[in-house]
Structures are given as structure tokens and as C-alpha cells.
Design a protein around this nucleic acid. Sequence first.
DNA 1: AGATTTTATTGCACGGCCCGACAAATTGTG
DNA 2: CACAATTTGTCGGGCCGTGCAATAAAATCT
Lengths: 410, 410
Amino acid sequence: MARARSGAPRRRVRAGRSSRRHSLGGVLECLHLDGPTSRTQLTELTGLTRSTIAELVQELGQLGFVEERAAPLVTGPGRPSPVVHPRPQAAVVLAVELAVASVSLATVGLGGRVLARSRLARPEDDPAALVAEIAAAAAPLLAALPDRARVVGTGVAVVGVARSQDGVVELAPNLGWRGVPLGAMLDAALGLPGWLLVGNDADLGALAEQRRGVGRGVEHLLYVSGEVGLGCGVISSGIPLRGTHGFAGEAGHMLVNPDGRPCRCGATGCWETEAGSARLLARAGLATGSAGIDELEVRAAAGEAAACAALCEVGRWLGIGIGDLVNLFDPQLVVLGSVYGRLFGWLEPSLRDGVGLRSMTAMGGAVEVVRSGLVGEAALLGAAELVFDRLLADPAGAVRRRSEPRVAGG
Amino acid sequence: MARARSGAPRRRVRAGRSSRRHSLGGVLECLHLDGPTSRTQLTELTGLTRSTIAELVQELGQLGFVEERAAPLVTGPGRPSPVVHPRPQAAVVLAVELAVASVSLATVGLGGRVLARSRLARPEDDPAALVAEIAAAAAPLLAALPDRARVVGTGVAVVGVARSQDGVVELAPNLGWRGVPLGAMLDAALGLPGWLLVGNDADLGALAEQRRGVGRGVEHLLYVSGEVGLGCGVISSGIPLRGTHGFAGEAGHMLVNPDGRPCRCGATGCWETEAGSARLLARAGLATGSAGIDELEVRAAAGEAAACAALCEVGRWLGIGIGDLVNLFDPQLVVLGSVYGRLFGWLEPSLRDGVGLRSMTAMGGAVEVVRSGLVGEAALLGAAELVFDRLLADPAGAVRRRSEPRVAGG
DNA sequence: AGATTTTATTGCACGGCCCGACAAATTGTG
DNA sequence: CACAATTTGTCGGGCCGTGCAATAAAATCT
């Protein structure tokens, strides 16, 4: 979308955001990510002229995605610029996160606002039963949507690897799944319009952190998530790393300790075996499950020796693995999510030691390692973003051909 | 790399190739990569119409980049489509590869044709002296260019990590360098117009394999290069993985064997220490240097025990590391280059064992592992491609503002 | 030689965007 | 309260890149 220029060189549409049809998506993306924005700010963000922005905003208004309101705040001299607000109900995504011991659901509106939440604590193991349970849980959320809300699709985060083409969960060891056509099953059970996209929870966590969490605007980002296993999502040059089959970033079975325990993947000393939350709980003498993490937190706060030792040891292995990944991906920021996010305070010291042990920070600047800012909802919000991405790629088209649902991986 | 067909809504320029000014670059890129192409083929490749292609080809002709010739071959009924040929001398890159024990130079024309080669066997160690030597070696190559040849820049591959912004070689342990402003030094010594771009040899090897080697058209590719150290370049979703500082893919210091030898990076059991060609020679009881590799090849062919054992052992460690990387990057193809390419036949069996040991090939299809198809010139050709990339991003602009050289990393 | 097939050329139209001029809305000042 | 200064929305004009359809050109087939 380059253009001939006559005056000063105008900045192109924001770097990293590739050209979209009509720039309509570009404008809507700004609003979706940055919230209400004045027209003038939009011209600065997109590099388009006032005329073009006016035209685009008008079209977005006609499509129902935005509404303009008078600027409430005093800005200084000059005519005030009206503020363009995204309308959450104009595009609603049903987001689902399949963790190991729980399922979270939420309806997320344009702009990223969570409209309502729901949670299943002890979900079924069998895929078919689980899908039915999810559909039942989704019904009240969807019923509670405001009138004239427009559902644009469903995003699903799953602890396992999802195939890009069709949303089949190839392998989810912690759920005991293999080759489950989750996308198609959910699509049939829910009967919702729009896309149904399935992605790995860590990949989606990375996406969410980059969009709405601590990694806003960071081009190269690593997200490490601890559920029962250990997941890792990578964003490089602003786009999620996918790989041929959509399995890129599966770092859980990277070698860190050949003297370590055998892993159920067949190899020994995998990162997950040494630093996964299952190992963390076992090392602290606790039972597996989310209740175990609560208990661990209590014991660590109380200064119990076994708990602290477990956190220290696991933190070190976590850091060693992260150090290797830092060398491989050269990220600007590493975000620790889910269980690791919760326990970040206790893991941090030994984790930083581990990172320093292996990463060649001498080469570049030191990497920043932080905890997630999305209080355990990273993967859920990421699942929603997956669907919003499709919408933003062609907002007008999404409205036009609504009755053409597509199931795919993320 | 699907292509557009008439009837259905036309796809924009080939997916993965972002929109370029005027689509001019897109057309020139097709010609640069695929060689002489008929106008009709160009419409199929780019998805543009005949009218547009005609206009673009005319403009490229006026700029001197291409010339049309009558179709020499019998095609069938109908009016024959003229074939558009890239003119090599219209854009010439001086490519330089700084290996450990040698320096290679070549002039490469548009379309990827190597116009002339040169080689320094025992180069100087000191950066300043080396740069002078390179400039002296480049002079006859440049003098031998055909009349009216247009030099568009210089591409440099170096065994070390080059900073993206300015082409400073941050760290090149095998050359004993640290913070050498190679880009600026070479630019000053050569005095050539256009860009001067510096990149890591493995990254550039990956680029070359994807453009002109065994990885043509492969979207996700891993290139493993053995010079003295061990380098690794990654191409994901068609674009080179860069990272914040341009250090992504630096897998040489990934942990593979904690029981292994200490590495000069400070850690122990790094991949490079176990599988680098230095280790290979040491294990076979040979002295370091390229002569050692020749000798190793002879002894292995003769069936000498120590040589075979070394190849087997190193091949296994190589495979283990590759297996981990396969999990991390999910490539479609792994290419072994430089020393590993030469010795591929002997390394292959134990290497495949090692890969199987760690990579979860059960998940997706098996990864293909092959030797480089560019007979030791991958990095050199990749360095040229680095510069061609800039040219193709805006061919008209490159002609317009020639006197504006820019030094940068690749 | 004429029919058929495939392709290049040409003129036209449209969409997306920039530009310049003008009107509108606000703040600051006498 | 009127005026200047400032900033912004609006409208008409125009350019550029590309698609579309009609026409001319160059080959093969019969």
C-alpha cells in the first residue's frame, strides 16, 4: 500500500501491521487495541490524511463497529476532535480456554472488553462430553449478551498442539487426547456464526501479552506458561511463530538435563519434566492439581523448607531453559504466565540465576523477564484475539459473508 | 505459493511477499528467483492482469532491469508470449564471505548468476589488514564486470553475530573479534555505491538455500552450518528469524550435554562443543583447519576407525541438537551446509538416530534432512540475496537515489 | 487460406487516497 | 463581547494503480 508522495514522506501504516483492505482494518485495529481514539490521533497512528480517516470512520460507523462522541476533555485551543469509540457489542467472540483441571469461558467484545465470564471446575475427560458441557456453559453467556450483539466467532485455547488447517488437536498429553477434531465438534455443538479457531494455550498467551498485557508493542516476545506441562509461545518480528504444522515453540520437550527423569514423551530430562508444575508439586511433596498450587503458595509464604526448595530448584531449571530459548529467539521480553505467573515472586531469584547461566547476555542487552499482567487469563484473551485478527483483516467482508463459518487452527 | 486464477476474486501479490511499490518489485522478484519468464507466466505468478504486467515490464525495461525476447520454444497454438529476461549486469552485488580460514568473494548479477569468483586462502587476522586485503581482491572482480554494469551494493557474510542497525560485528569468537565495525570499514575501503549489508553466515546460508538451493519455496527451513563453530539459521513463514538484536537462531550454545566439555562461552556441554567441527577433528585425532577436513574425508573413505567413530559420534550429537530445534521451530526441511554438507554421507546415519531420539516426529510428519545443494557457497550467495532484497523492495527507488549508501546488518 | 486459439494492446472505469480550500468549533485577548 | 489564533471536519478535484472488455496480432490446426 505504498503511495506516491509529494510533500514530506508520510509514515506508512504502523510498522508490523501489514496492509489491509481499504485500511479499514488498520483503523479498526487501532481502536481495538488502543481503545477510544480521536480522529486526529488516528491520522497520526495510521499515517492517513484527515479526509481518508473521515471516510473510513464513516464506513466503520455504517457497519456498526464504531460510534463517535464529542470530546469530553479540554484539549487546548482549536476545534476539538471527536473521539471514535469501538462498540464492544458490534463484534463479540466466545473465548474458551481448556486447561487441565478447568475450562474457562468468556464473551469478549471488540476493544477487548470481557463482557461476561464462566468457569467449569471439574470438566469431563471425554471430548464429546466435554464439548456438550462447554456448549451448555456457553448458552447463558450468549443469552446475556446485549440486544443486537453480533457474534463473529469462537476462539479456543487448548493445552496441546492444534493443527493449523482444521483445528484438530493433534496431541494433548495432559488431556489424554490424540487427534481430537475439537474445532469441528465445538462448531457443531455451538452452532455459532463466524470463525471457529483453535490454538495452543501458550501461543495464545503470547499473543494476548503482546496485544493487551505487559508486552504491548514488543516485537519479539517469549511467553512461558505452566499448566501441568510447560508451554511456550513465541512472537517474532511482531507475528506469532507457527512452523510447518503450527507446532513451533513447543519447548516443553527441549533437553535440559540428561541426568533427569524420564519423560512420558520417551526422552529423558525434558524441560517439562524438570520445570513443569507437576515436578514443582512433586518436589514440594504435594498432590497434583490446582489446589496443590494454592497450598504451595501458602506454604511458601509460611517459609516451609520443602516448598521453598522446590520453588528454588524448579526456578533454576526454568531459568536454564529460558536462557537457551533467549539465545535461540533473541526476544526483548520474556513473560511468565499461569502457574509461573502466580509464583513468580518465589521463582524469580533462582530463575534469574539460571537464565544468566546459559544465555549469552554479554552479546546483547540483558533480556527483561517479567510476570504476566493478565491474571491467569492470557490464553483466554489470546483465543479471542485470534478471532479478532480475522475480523480486522477485512471488517467489511466479515459483515457481508457471515454465514460462512470456517474451522481452523490458530 | 498457491496462485491466483481468473474468475474468483484475484489474489493480491503472492502471499508472503508483502505489497511492494507498484508491484514492480514483485515482478522483478519473480524474474530474479525463477529466471526468464514469459509474460503469461508472470500474470499467473503475480495474480496481476495482462495490462498491468505489460505496464510493469515496460517500466522495468526502461529502468534497464529486463529485456524481452521472442519465445524461442514452440508452445502450442496461439500467439506466443514474449519471454522477459533479467539482465544480470543491471544489478550487480559484490558478495563477501568471511569464513575462519578463508575469504570468498564473488560478483553476483540479477537473477543470481555468479559473474566471477575469487578466494583468499590465508587471510589476515587483524580486521583493518583483512579489510584492505578484501578491497584489493575485489578490485579485479569489479574491473572485470561488463561495461555499463550497475553495482547496487555489497553483501557480507561473517562467522559471527552482526548487529542489525549498523553492521557492527558484535562477537565473532572464531575470528577473535568483538565489536568490529566491519560494515563501515569495508564501506570506506571499497567505496562502492549502494547498500553495504552484513549478516551471519548461517542466517545467510538459510536464505540462500531457500532462494536458490534445496529449500526453494519452503516456508519453514532450518540451516545448520559447521565452520569451526556451529551456526544455525532459521526461516519461518518465509522470512528469516531475526530477533531483537539480529541474534536469533544462535543455537551453537544451546545445551545438549551437561556432562560434556566446558565451552569457551562459559557454560558446559554446548552444542558447538559436542558437535562443532573443531570437536569432530579433535575426536578423529586431527589438527584444526580446513586441511583437517580434507584429511578426515580421506580417512573416512578408507574406513579408518577413529575417523568413522568421530563422524558417528559427532553426527549423533548433531542430530540430538537438530531434534530439539525441530521441536522448537517445526521446520519442513533441515539443510546441512559447509563442513556438514561435505561430510553428510558419513554423518547421516547417526544423525538421523539423534534426531529421532529427541524430535517428536510422532506429532507431525517426519522432517526432511538433506545436505546443502550449493557446494559450500550458501553463505556467499545469501549475502548477495541480502542486497537484492533491498533492491527488489523498490527497484525504481534504487535507481533514483543511488548515491545514498547505507551500512546495516542483515 | 481460413478457422481456432492464445496473447498483447488500448481505452475506459473505479476505488483508494492525497491535496487544497473552506467552514466550523474552540481558546485566548483586548 | 467581538476578534484573532488555532485546530479540525468537510467537500470537490485529481492522481495512481489496477481490473475489465473490446480489438488487433501471431501462432497452430484443418
